[in-house]
Design a binder for these strands. Structure first.
Length: 491
RNA sequence: GGCCCGGUGGCAGAGUGGCCAUGCAGCGGACUGCAAAUCCGCGUACGUCGGUUCGAUUCCGGCCCGGGCCUCCA
């Protein structure tokens, strides 16, 4: 059992060999807290959560660091637009982020550093870069000198000249070279700022990750993750800053998740297809869509693009229905300590092949359905649960899954509200609002089932079928087996 | 223009130099008072043109198409 990861730095899969197997460190770029996180943000959260779970299974001490960027021009702009203090905006948004990804069953990272709490470390790093001739001050700005770093471009595989040729580089008068990027910049009195050797200012975007990963994981980290769009410039610049400041390799394995599109289009506010995690979770609150979203994400390999569509979500839910059905049918089998299925381990070891792992889960579910003796059932059930746990799924109560829990809406800044009813699993901003159906109360369902069974006893099948139809209209599906009737809410 | 990914059956989506993906949907059967669930069976899939090979969807090259990045971005 050995983990293989695709390393962006090498553009190839390679065996993961930690520097120190007793202390494995992973740094993942977290959110900039200026607005609700969107479903694109959910992808790295879920992908690296699975990697974290896998690493914890393989190594005794894993430190997972995911930062919160709470100083940024977008934050300043959003606060101004909302007429809201910056600290209130970032606190509110960070809290919403935690609530949202909690619904996705993502484990919290071990450390969640905030940029504003590491200004001192950033300033210290910038000073070292200046001392070593890799950065210079100009008109209150401090810029990183790309020309001073012979290795610049090794992560994103592009040369400085190619960047300039792109001609979209910001040419500022204080730059010695158009490719240079900002480490520190002056801040207006009404904007967040900190005293520094270069006057009152605030950090550039890239320096925070360099400073925070150094502080919490050391100069050289095992794994650095994020979305592919961050490869350039963000991660390239992190490499440049950290390696020039420390003279040591920065990250040994770079892991990048692919992009998410919505109905085949790039998600953007201008296209009107911008979906927040929060809105996605409201699509079908009674059916725990956090887990549906999770299976949807894991159904595609993390480096492949993934397309958010209604059909894809329905298929994810169908997969979960199958898993939970197998578990429901084995409900009376005692739970035993379970072993993760070897195929699941092997699939995840191969660069996090979650679709293949899901296939193994389907096989387990099928085997469980077919198992005839109690010991096989117990073993397969336990294996299915343990394997699911490694993927962060199948943690719910089986009956709750089928009967539809009444969930509290994900907390908003003003509190929480109770949401009842299962809307269609609608997708897209235009259809999110329509979840107005009201649940039939469970007591009423049970009463009708009793009435139907009484009818069946006296062979009044017309009445029995009438009641079945009444319930079907409410989205309730009945299943008669072994003398008892169970029910579930249909999708 | 530069760099990087992809194109697999109705849909989604793994994978492999010669034999099975898997799920959903569909069809047939078993089971059921009827259903549902489950089980069994069923589908001449690998963009295109060449090359290597005994044999390629899988390796190599050209082409076509799609996507991402090129200092806002997970």
């Amino acid at each position: 059992m050995s983990l293989v990861l695709y390393n962006t730095l090498k553009r190839a899969k390679e065996p993961f060999v930690p520097r120190d197997p007793k202390h494995v460190g992973m740094y993942v770029c977290g959110p900039t807290v200026y607005d609700f996180a969107h479903i694109g943000n959910a992808r790295p959260v879920i992908v690296f959560d699975v990697l974290y779970r896998l690493l914890k299974r393989r190594y005794p001490n894993v430190i997972y660091v995911r930062n919160i960027t709470d100083v940024d021009d977008k934050i300043n702009a959003a606060a101004k637009a909302n007429n809201e203090p910056i600290a209130a905006l970032t606190a509110r948004t960070a809290q919403a982020f935690h609530a949202d990804i909690g619904e996705l069953n993502a484990l919290p990272p071990d450390v969640e550093p905030r940029a504003t709490e590491h200004i001192g470390e950033m300033i210290a790093m910038i000073r070292i870069l200046i001392e070593r001739g890799h950065a210079y001050e100009a008109q209150g700005h401090v810029l990183f000198s790309v020309a001073s770093d012979a290795d610049y471009g090794k992560l994103s595989n592009r040369s400085r000249d190619e960047m300039i040729a792109g001609a979209r580089v910001e040419i500022a008068p204080y730059k010695k070279d158009p490719a240079d990027f900002v480490l520190w910049k002056p801040s207006a009195p009404d904007l967040p700022g900190w005293e520094s050797p270069w006057g009152r200012g605030r950090p550039g975007w890239h320096i925070e990750c360099s400073a925070m990963s150094k502080k919490h994981l050391g100069q050289t980290i095992d794994i650095h993750g994020g979305g592919v769009d961050l490869v350039f410039p963000h991660h390239e610049n992190e490499v440049a800053q950290s390696e020039c400041a420390h003279g040591a390799p920065f990250a040994r394995y770079w892991v990048h998740n692919g992009f998410l599109s919505v109905n085949g289009e790039k998600m953007s506010k201008s296209l009107g297809n911008f979906i927040t995690i929060r809105d996605a979770l409201k699509l079908a609150p009674g059916l725990a869509p956090g887990e549906v979203i999770r299976v949807f994400m894991l159904g595609t390999h993390y480096r492949q693009p993934i397309d958010w569509t209604e059909d894809a979500l329905k298929q994810a839910r169908s997969s979960l229905d199958r898993f939970y059905t197998a578990l429901r049918n084995a409900a009376d089998v005692p739970a035993v300590a379970g072993a993760v299925d070897p195929e699941v381990d092997a699939a995840l070891d191969d660069d996090l092949n979650t679709p293949l792992a899901l296939q193994a889960l389907h096989r387990l579910a099928g085997d469980l359905n077919k198992a005839t003796n109690v010991s096989d059932c117990a073993r397969l059930k336990a294996s299915l649960l343990a394997s699911g746990d490694l993927l962060g799924i199948l943690k719910q109560d089986v009956e709750a899954w089928f009967k539809g829990r009444i969930v509290a809406a994900v907390g908003t800044a003003s509190g929480t509200s109770t949401v009842k009813g299962v809307g269609a699993l609608a997708v897209g901003a235009a259809t999110i609002s329509g979840s107005g159906a009201v649940f039939m109360e469970e007591g009423e369902i049970e009463r009708l089932i009793d009435a139907r069974n009484a009818a069946r006893q006296r062979k009044d099948f017309a009445e029995a079928d009438r009641i079945r139809a009444v319930l079907a209209e409410q989205g309730i599906v009945l299943e008669d087996k072994a003398g008892t009737t169970t029910w579930r809410r249909a999708g």
